[in-house]
Design a binder for these strands. Structure first.
Lengths: 342, 342
DNA sequence: CTGAAAGCGCTTACAG
DNA sequence: CTGAAAGCGCTTACAG
């Protein structure tokens, strides 16, 4: 037996009163008598009433839904950020619609469009590796839909942003290798476009420079998909060249793990002959032997901060209309964790 | 300058026609002239029109949103399932709202309620470890909202289900240890309630029985949160007892990894003195040394299957009203991957 | 304290 | 071929 979901009308009919009264009673308006409220609440419970949020959303012009666009879900960093987003959103009565770009710009565009017509209250995004132009986000600005970018942000787009200081973190990582005695330091870097892979490269370059080590372009490898396999293959290539590195700064832990496995396959001793440092502090960094020195970044807090900023902006706009917002960029701290690989 | 989002009315006004005509033109109704259609489509584009899905949903009684309730996002198995769900949902024009129970029944109840009043078209769920009664799902049945359960399912609740054969997989795992010569096999099992941890225990028990090995209750440890640390601690306890196991069947890879680390901390050789097998085939199983023998389960396919069944049911009900549905339980195959730990 | 009415943005049966 | 009207389920300013 299928029932239709109870509406205000059903309750009003049952009680011989009107929709208006029922609606007000349920929302505890002061101008409704206690008896009426009691009766309405009782009947609502009995009839399993739950407000139709679509109707509420339509009426109020608010959906309490936030859209998230990230490259991947099966990913140590992003799943942790997502966790931070979801938990804090739920606490404040917002729900999350999640979409994944798989680092493809076209997908990202589609999702922006979709979330736009789903009338989400705001959007959190980490750009696809492939994305260069962020024109497809302009429509959100035009219609005053708040956006927060994290991790892979745009430098030109005006909005709230959360990330870490990739350059100084990469500097720290490279400097660590230098302090440990490395002279020939390779960098397996991220793809061309994302600002954070550029910043990490800059940190690497800058640390070499400050320590009077010439940058050898043959020692910089550029990943496409940033997979363990790429880390493995690039490391083999580096270690089979005439000019072997004695240190590798890997742009992520996955790359670092691939590097360790490649070195081991050639019988090269870590950290004696080769030192390796990763980035992210994911679980594999602790579990691999030798364990991987890495840069810890506050994943959960990045998600938490992003959702907080977004909800603040949403509620600020609700209160003051489209008053001008001062956008901020919040930079969270990282630290180096030394393990066996250096 | 904030704009209000364009509505049908805006377009009609601009064109000096009516909402009806604009709506029909955009949906390519046959009874609208070509010229009108052309003009409407052009104007819609110019004005950045996107239909308000809330209104469409309200009118049509459909939201094209599917709710997902899972214990965790930061979790190898669940993030992979989620990936399978999201990708296949997007292809069919559905979006996912994701909520996490953190294995707490109360949270799960709250989410069911929330998703119900969000009027999602259907729900996919893997039960919280804590959940015994599934009464809180009854409301979905009452109102004909399709549900698919996966992994941690209920045996009493009538709905479509997707999982693996946990019992026979566990049997396979235990039998593998026996074939490798283990005589004293411990099992670090999952929590009390979830059917799949019970089934895995049953598989273990049954394999021992078939091989004339008496089950020693002291060799069965029960996890609460199924964390690496629990695996570590229980393994220390087992290995420090008078009656040491020579094999451990761990209910997940995380437990298996903890077991390996605990054994190593005591200087016990794997696999010579102790053999360990996990369950899931997550990345850590490949990366730890010795690498972990495990049961591979098709994570992505579980998600894919769940969302397919759900969408099928949604569309079936749309077409035929609440005709009776034949619920199915789809069992996906697992296989054993032998690595260094056995 | 209660209720009639307008309206959020759409869809669609019906009339012309 | 075009359009007026009802209605999806709510909220809320207004009248009584």
């Amino acid at each position: 037996m299928s029932k239709n979901r109870t509406t205000l009308k059903d309750i009003a009919l049952e009680l011989g009163t009107t929709i208006t009264t029922v609606s007000k009673a349920l929302k505890n308006y002061p101008d409704i008598s206690k008896e009426t409220k009691k009766a309405v609440i009782k009947m609502a419970k009995k009839m399993n009433y739950e407000p139709d949020m679509r109707a509420v959303a339509l009426k109020k012009g608010k959906s309490n839904i936030i859209g998230v666009i990230i490259p991947e879900v099966v990913h140590f960093f992003f799943s942790n950020v997502l966790e931070g987003i979801i938990k804090n959103a739920e606490e404040k009565g917002y729900k999350i619609i999640i979409t994944t770009s798989h680092n493809i710009s076209k997908q990202e565009k589609k999702h922006v469009r979709f979330l736009f017509n789903k009338k989400v209250d705001g959007i959190i995004v980490s750009l696809a590796n492939e994305t260069k132009s962020v024109k497809h986000f302009d429509i959100l600005k035009e219609y005053d839909i708040p956006i927060v970018m994290f991790d892979k942000v745009s430098d030109t787009f005006q909005c709230n942003k959360v990330n870490i200081d990739d350059k100084s973190s990469a500097y720290k990582a490279t400097e660590h290798l230098i302090k440990k005695g490395c002279k020939k330091i390779a960098h397996i870097r991220g793809p061309k476009h994302p600002l954070n892979s550029i910043a990490r490269f800059e940190g690497y370059r800058s640390a070499l420079e400050d320590n009077d080590i010439a940058l050898n372009p043959n020692m910089v490898m550029e990943c496409k998909d940033v997979t363990l396999k790429e880390g493995y293959d690039f490391t083999l290539e580096l270690l089979n060249s005439d000019d072997k590195p004695d240190g590798i700064f890997a742009v992520t832990d996955q790359i670092g793990v691939g590097a360790i496995q490649a070195a081991q396959s050639l019988g090269i001793k870590i950290p004696e002959e080769l030192k390796i440092i990763g980035f992210s502090d994911s679980q594999v960094a602790q579990i691999i032997r030798p364990s991987l020195t890495t840069i810890h970044q506050p994943n959960y807090e990045i998600g938490e901060t992003a959702i907080r900023m977004l909800i603040e902006e949403i509620e600020l706009r609700e209160a003051h209309g489209d008053s001008d917002i001062d956008f901020r960029q919040i930079i969270l701290d990282t630290y180096l964790i030394e393990r066996e690989s250096t």
